[in-house]
């Protein structure tokens, strides 16, 4: 009985110590979160105030005429910029006779979703089941994106906060990699993928995506804005590196995580991967859809539908995460 109690106490003791440490960190975190919330509130107030000021008292260096001219110019440009996209969407809703109508109309007279349903019929007839293409793309996109998020954030954490010798040099290399595109390295990349026996597997797309330089760059720049005191508090409380990373850093970089996710999804979703994947049953959705699109004049309607489907995913993701991406972009600058 006594022994048991002692044991209990023994178990209890470290637990309670850890508990207090946890509490301390959570308290610290709470404080930080509160501070952030207060800051956001203040900023919002300022924005509101700013708007009110705009209504009451305009900025001193603005003339009404200039503002109106600017608005008209912007509206004109916005219409011109969005025209191809709007036209692509409206074409996908046109029945076949209207698609070939001349002179063309911008908006369909009798809009229909026939093109999309036709597309699904065509997809159903392909000899590799269409769900297979979709699964392939989802697999590549999800695994690639999350792997990239974790691996790049871990690296960004030590580069931003770790103060390790060689860290700056490595980060310079990453910024250098931003300066050239994947085309430059495509041939040796293929040889390396081949060397590891990854040709014609999904890994050939997924593994290189883990180390996209843009993700690390964004994440590292954003992490620099997290106060050092926060981590030091956690370290004093006895949290190890991993714990600090998972409980302090990671929850506080949500906007940057979101940005990384969106960029990775954009890159992977649009990846036809024709260079490294040969087997039909391993190919991606974009590849299959492009095949349908290349089907000639009889598939004009379906091609329009394909264009819209491929285009919508990155755009919708962006709309969904716009404010967080812009928040991350605020720290995207290159300091030296």
């Amino acid at each position: 009985m006594k022994e048991k109690k002692e044991k209990n106490m023994n178990i209890d003791a470290p637990l309670s110590a850890e508990d207090t440490a946890k509490k301390a960190t959570t308290a610290e975190l709470d404080e930080y979160a509160k501070e952030r919330a207060a800051l956001a509130k203040r900023q919002k107030k300022q924005v509101v105030k700013h708007h009110k000021k705009l209504i009451k008292r305009r900025k001193p260096n603005r003339s009404i005429g200039g503002d109106i001219a600017l608005y008209i110019f912007l509206i004109f440009i916005a219409i011109a910029m969005s025209f191809p996209i709007v036209y692509a969407i409206s074409s996908s809703l046109k029945p076949l006779d209207e698609l070939f109508m001349f002179p063309p109309k911008i908006f369909a007279k009798y809009p229909t979703t026939d093109n999309f349903s036709d597309l699904f019929v065509t997809m159903g007839k392909s000899w590799v089941p269409f769900s297979r293409y979709l699964t392939n793309t989802l697999l590549i996109t999800v695994v690639g994106t999350f792997g990239h998020l974790i691996i790049a954030s871990m690296a960004a954490y030590v580069l931003a906060k770790g103060d390790i010798p060689g860290g700056n040099g490595f980060f310079k290399l990453v910024t250098l990699a931003l300066m050239f595109t994947g085309y430059v390295t495509s041939i040796p990349n293929y040889l390396i993928i081949n060397f590891f026996g990854m040709v014609d597997t999904h890994l050939a797309v997924i593994i290189p995506a883990f180390a996209m330089p843009i993700g690390l760059f964004m994440m590292k720049q954003y992490m620099e804005s997290i106060p050092d005191a926060l981590m030091e508090a956690a370290r004093i409380d006895g949290a190890n590196e991993w714990k600090t990373f998972m409980t302090i850093i990671f929850p506080n970089v949500k906007p940057a995580s979101m940005t990384i996710i969106i960029f990775a999804v954009q890159a992977l979703w649009n990846n036809g991967a024709t260079n490294v994947i040969y087997s039909e049953e391993k190919k991606t959705l974009v590849y299959a859809l492009n095949q349908i699109q290349g089907g000639g004049i009889a598939r004009t309607g379906q091609a329009a539908a394909v264009t819209v489907i491929i285009m919508m995913v990155p755009i919708l993701f962006f709309i969904f995460a716009e404010s967080q991406i812009l928040e991350t972009m605020a720290s995207s600058g290159m300091k030296d």
């Binding site: 790049a152 871990m154 490595f170 290399l173 390396i192 593994i207 180390a211 330089p213």
Partner: peptide
Amino acid sequence: FLLPYALIFTLFNIL
């Protein structure tokens, strides 16, 4: 922490 990224980055960008 840096190792996984550094490894893949070196393999597919530097090398």
